[in-house]
């Protein structure tokens, strides 16, 4: 069995502070991490491999700048067998469609996966679109918002959580699954895993290695364009209460709730 895990390197949002004047993120000094939900995807692959009698290999794939290799090495330390770095200046500025295109072609190129796993969405772009787009480009079925995977020889039985309940679906291979944090608790790398991953050879693929029309790459190949970016005005006028002022504040709040929330 061959499993691929699609991962993304993202800014560590727990690190990031807000600039109180502009309301924008201060990225300087914050590190990068593997997108948290992608860690759940890696862990799912590791568990499937552990529980299978037949041979199983895990390939972890990312598109990003050269330093995204650190995310791949971390994934290797967590239990992936090989890692593919998709890096090329021509990939830069890709929207979800153009990102999915590169990932889909790299999956075709490195080939023959039964199961492709990914986090449901990344904490930076948070579109959640790349997974289903990749699946569509490969003409394979996709399940999203997955919180449970039961693995069988020819298929997986997944549980997806939706607004008003849970769906259980049996999906035949090959398929793509995007996962949520309820699925599992990501493992920790072993010391040996860390040492080995530092020395591991990564597979690097550039635009020339993939069968993609040049006008479908990166910013040029992206159907969507960001045309304007604005910083929303923080319109809230915060009323602060502390110490003896708290009780007065609660009464004021009660009046506000009565007039604006309950009065409909």
């Amino acid at each position: 069995m061959k499993i691929a895990v699609l991962i993304k390197q993202v800014p560590d949002t727990d690190d990031v502070k807000l600039d109180p004047n502009t309301g924008t993120m201060i990225r300087e000094g914050s590190g990068t991490i593997i997108n948290p939900l992608d860690l759940n995807a890696i862990e799912a692959a590791v568990q499937i491999k552990r529980n299978r009698i037949n041979p199983c290999s895990i390939t972890v794939i990312t598109m990003g700048p050269p330093n995204a290799q650190f995310a791949l090495r971390e994934a290797l330390a967590l239990g992936a067998d090989q890692a593919v770095l998709l890096t090329d200046r021509k990939f830069a500025g890709a929207d979800s469609w153009a990102t999915a295109k590169v990932l889909a072609e790299s999956l075709k190129k490195t080939g023959g996966y039964d199961l492709i796993l990914a986090g449901e969405k990344a904490t930076d772009g948070e579109t959640g679109q790349v997974g289903p787009e990749v699946a569509a480009m490969l003409s394979i079925p996709c399940a999203t918002y997955v919180t449970k995977i039961e693995n069988h020889e020819e298929n997986v039985v997944i549980t997806r959580i939706v607004e008003d309940g849970f769906q259980r679906q049996r999906i035949h291979f090959p398929c793509l699954i995007t996962v949520l944090s309820d699925l599992n608790r990501p493992g920790m790398p072993t010391l040996k895993g860390k040492m080995d991953s530092r020395r591991a050879t990564l597979i690097t693929l550039t635009a020339g290695d993939l069968d993609i029309n040049p006008d479908e790459l990166g910013l040029m190949g992206s159907p969507t364009r960001v045309v304007k970016v604005t910083t929303p005005q923080k319109t809230r006028k915060t009323k602060r209460y502390s110490g003896n002022g708290v009780e007065k504040g609660i009464v004021e709040l009660a009046e506000k709730i009565k007039s604006s929330v309950l009065n409909r």
Binding site: D95, S96, W97, A100, A104, E126, T127, G128, Q129, V130, G131, P132, E133, V134, A135, A136, M137, C142, T144, Y145, R160, I161, V162, E163, S222, P223, T224
Partner: peptide, 23 residues
């Protein structure tokens, strides 16, 4: 932008090759 729409629409975008803006 529900779990349904956020699953079906990107798959449609990938199928028919067009852009999709989330949320």
């Amino acid at each position: 932008a529900t779990t349904g729409g956020r699953t079906v629409m990107p798959a449609v975008a990938g199928t028919i090759h067009t852009g999709l803006t989330a949320d």
